[in-house]
Amino acid sequence: MIPQPTELKLLNPDTLQIAWNDGLVGRITIRELRENCPCANCIEKRSKPEPIALLPILKAEETQPLRITKMDPQGRYAYAIDFSDGHNTGLFTLDLLRELGEVVGDEGIGE
């Protein structure tokens, strides 16, 4: 059975904390979430070499600090996350969220 989140909490604008029903508590930076977006476009972009650009062209929203603007559960297996840079096509499975999270607590594990 896939562990389920019991609490999702923004600790500050840059960090999401997830408490799981098995006692594990993990933290993920918003930047790490965005950089690991599982949508097809992001996977393809990450697999290509970075183009050499002297002056990258950024959209206005890309110049602002990255934030989560919306996070909706998708059944009992994933979350759809909207980011402040306008990206909203990634479906983050619970397995991925758990894998990305840095463990900061493990109350109840091993009991």
Rank of each mutant, 00 (worst) to 15 (best):
M1H: 13
M1Q: 13
M1G: 14
I2E: 15
I2N: 14
Q4I: 06
P5C: 04
P5E: 02
E7L: 08
L8W: 04
K9D: 10
K9C: 10
K9F: 08
K9A: 12
L10W: 00
L10G: 03
L11Q: 12
P13Y: 00
P13L: 00
P13Q: 06
D14W: 00
T15K: 14
T15I: 09
I18H: 04
I18L: 07
A19Y: 07
A19E: 15
A19V: 08
W20E: 05
N21H: 13
G23I: 02
L24A: 09
V25R: 13
G26H: 00
G26I: 01
R27F: 07
I28C: 06
T29G: 12
T29P: 09
T29F: 01
T29E: 13
T29Q: 12
T29R: 06
I30R: 00
I30E: 01
R31M: 13
E32T: 11
E32S: 10
L33T: 07
L33S: 03
E35C: 00
E35V: 00
N36F: 04
C37P: 04
P38G: 08
C39Q: 05
C39A: 07
A40V: 15
A40F: 11
A40P: 10
C42I: 06
C42G: 11
C42Y: 02
I43R: 15
I43C: 14
I43H: 12
E44L: 12
E44M: 13
R46G: 05
R46T: 05
R46I: 02
P49R: 07
P49M: 02
E50M: 14
P51S: 04
I52T: 06
I52V: 10
I52P: 07
A53N: 11
A53D: 11
L54R: 08
L55D: 14
P56N: 04
I57Q: 12
I57C: 09
L58I: 06
A60F: 09
A60V: 11
E61F: 02
E61G: 01
T63F: 09
T63S: 12
Q64P: 06
Q64N: 10
Q64S: 08
P65M: 01
P65C: 06
P65L: 01
P65R: 03
L66V: 03
I68Q: 01
T69A: 01
T69N: 04
T69H: 01
K70E: 15
M71A: 11
M71L: 15
Q74S: 14
Q74C: 13
Q74T: 13
G75N: 10
G75R: 08
A78H: 02
A78G: 05
A80M: 11
A80I: 11
D82M: 08
F83Y: 12
F83K: 05
S84H: 04
S84A: 05
S84L: 03
G86R: 09
G86K: 07
H87P: 11
H87M: 13
N88D: 15
N88A: 09
L91N: 14
F92Y: 15
F92P: 13
T93W: 04
T93H: 05
L94N: 11
L94M: 06
L94W: 00
L96A: 01
L96N: 07
L97R: 03
L97A: 01
L97H: 00
L97I: 03
L100P: 05
V103W: 14
G105A: 14
G105R: 10
G105I: 01
E107V: 04
G108F: 03
G108Q: 02
G108R: 04
G110A: 07
G110R: 02
E111W: 13
